Structure formats: C-alpha cells, structure tokens
Computed example of a mutant assay.
Amino acid sequence: MTTMTTPTPPNQNAKKTILFLGATGGVALSALRRSLAAGHTCIALCRTPANLTAQLDHTTWSNLHIIQGDAHDASTLHACLRTPATEDGKEGGRVVDTIVSSLGAKPTWKGISDAHVCEKGMVALLEALRRRRAEDGDGDGDGDAARGKKVVVPRLVAVTSTGISDVARDVPLPLMMLYRALLHTPHADKKAMEGLAVAAGKAGEVEWTFVRGSLYTNGPETEGLVRVGVEDPVKGVVEKEAMGYTISREDVGKWVFEECLEGDGRQWVGKAAILTY
C-alpha cells in the first residue's frame, strides 16, 4: 500500500539548507553570496572547487560547505542532498530545503562543450532524489513516511532561458532570430531539462520553479529595472507578459535569493518567471 506524502512548507523566517549546482556561474554565485550573508547553510557542488574559492573567500563563511564532484553523478548528488551537521552538534542528514541549479555548457572553438549538460544534470538529480526518498521511506514499510511523518519534498529553482516556451513568444523578434541561429542547441538542452522537472513535479518528487532570463550579461545589479513575467507551463497560460532583450546575471541571482530562497516562495512553485529589463 502506497502512502501519499505531502510537502512540508518551510518556515518563512527559518534558515534553510540550500544546495547549489553550477555555483561558479554568475547567477548561482550571486544567489549563493546573498544566501551566505543571510545565514543560510549552503552546499556548493563544484567540479573544481578552486574556481569557486577564487571568486568567494570560503574561509569567511562557516555556513558554506564545498563538495568536489560532478553534477552528472547521481551518487555524488545523493550525498549532497543531506544536510550537514551543525557546529553546535545537531545532527544533519535530512533532505535539503532547496536546490538551485544553474548548470550550463561553455562555448568552445568546436561548439558547445556539452550539448546535454542540463538534461543530464536533471536526470542525475532526480535519480539522487529518488534514492534519498527511498531511504526516507515512501510508504513501503520503511522510513519516515511509513511512520506517519511528512516527507519533505525539496524545492528546485532551475535557471533556464527565455526563447524556449511552448506557450508564447517571450523575446522580441530580432532576439528570437539570434537565438535560433546561435543558441538552438543549449536552448533545446534547457527545454529538455524543464520537461524532466515538470514530469517529476507531477509525480510529487519535487516542487519546481523555472527562472528564464533574457540574454544574460555580466552587468551589475540594478534597482527598479527588472521586469518579471509569469508563465504556467503546465496549464499553458501566460499570466503576465514581460518581453525584453537583456538581464544581468547579478540581477537574476538577486531575484532568486529574494523571491525563492529568503522568503517562502510558494507563489513561484509550478511557475516560470521571465526576467528582463
């Protein structure tokens, strides 16, 4: 007999444990810095930790836990999904509250470094979550669910891109032409990633939010310039339109922190947020 589990909503004022994938990139790095400063426990999975420590003084933050490994390896991700023990001796081991995934391929002289980096990362993450869920118990006689406890369903904040919607065009036509000419492969990868997350959401494995920025830049954060559109990819409805050309990675990371990490963020569950200037 299978017992249905229900998500346990986080306390809006409680400190969270957040797993960052792709933390050396601009969006995740921006959100990571802000999360550390706010006192949240942050786990950063990095293939090359030096790439992160070169941008972030890890000795300053006792709430930062850097793990070396590959985001395409389900076993590594499985270990990262457990909260670390605290300095005051409290035992860790429960599932993390939120996962921020900002994986992406790098352009090379031969083309995109990995045409399926996002899709493979999502496959591995969902496999790791399933293993973690099986350990906690899913109503089969073992674990928390079988003992009547609520099993936490983690939040997933996945950074993707505009120009991949099946519902409506969310970028100006000139930019759409550029996307189709130069970014078809990485956009197909992000679209595949989103599809996997939506399916996992329907199965009750994760609560997802997609953050679709327009053309990303390395500009600074701004005040009052970011416009936010809202799409429901499951219902196929655009709830609020926002169409533009660019957005800085710093501003996207700031929005992720303020809207999805620092607060409750439930209004963004099952939604795609379109961020642009």
Rank of each mutant, 00 (worst) to 15 (best):
G104W: 12
A105R: 08
P107Y: 13
K110L: 11
I112H: 10
S113T: 10
S113P: 12
S113A: 08
S113Q: 08
D114V: 09
H116E: 15
V117I: 15
E119A: 04
E119G: 05
E119R: 14
K120R: 15
K120M: 14
G121L: 13
G121S: 08
M122L: 15
M122F: 15
A124I: 13
A124R: 14
A124N: 09
L126D: 03
E127K: 10
R130A: 10
R130Q: 13
R130F: 09
R131S: 12
R131G: 14
R133P: 11
R133S: 12
R133I: 11
A134T: 15
A134Y: 12
A134S: 15
E135D: 11
E135Q: 15
G137M: 11
G137W: 13
D138R: 11
G139F: 01
G139H: 02
D140S: 04
G141H: 06
D142T: 14
G143S: 06
G143D: 05
A145L: 10
A146Q: 08
A146T: 10
A146I: 01
G148R: 07
K149D: 08
V151L: 07
V152L: 04
V153W: 13
V153Q: 13
L156T: 05
L156H: 12
L156R: 05
L156S: 03
A158F: 10
T160M: 02
T160Q: 00
S161I: 06
S161W: 00
T162N: 03
G163M: 08
G163L: 04
I164V: 09
I164D: 00
D166K: 12
D166N: 11
D166T: 10
V167F: 06
V167E: 04
R169H: 09
R169L: 09
D170P: 06
D170Y: 11
V171Q: 03
V171K: 02
V171P: 01
L173T: 11
L173R: 03
P174L: 05
L175E: 02
L178F: 11
Y179H: 10
Y179E: 02
A181D: 00
L183T: 01
L183I: 06
H184V: 02
P186E: 00
P186F: 00
P186V: 00
H187Q: 04
H187A: 02
D189G: 01
D189W: 07
K190Q: 02
K190C: 05
K191D: 05
G195L: 01
L196T: 08
A197R: 12
A197H: 07
A197K: 04
A199L: 12
A200D: 07
G201N: 00
G201V: 07
A203E: 05
A203S: 02
G204L: 06
G204P: 08
V206Y: 04
E207R: 14
W208E: 04
W208D: 01
W208Q: 03
W208F: 15
T209V: 10
T209E: 02
V211E: 02
R212F: 05
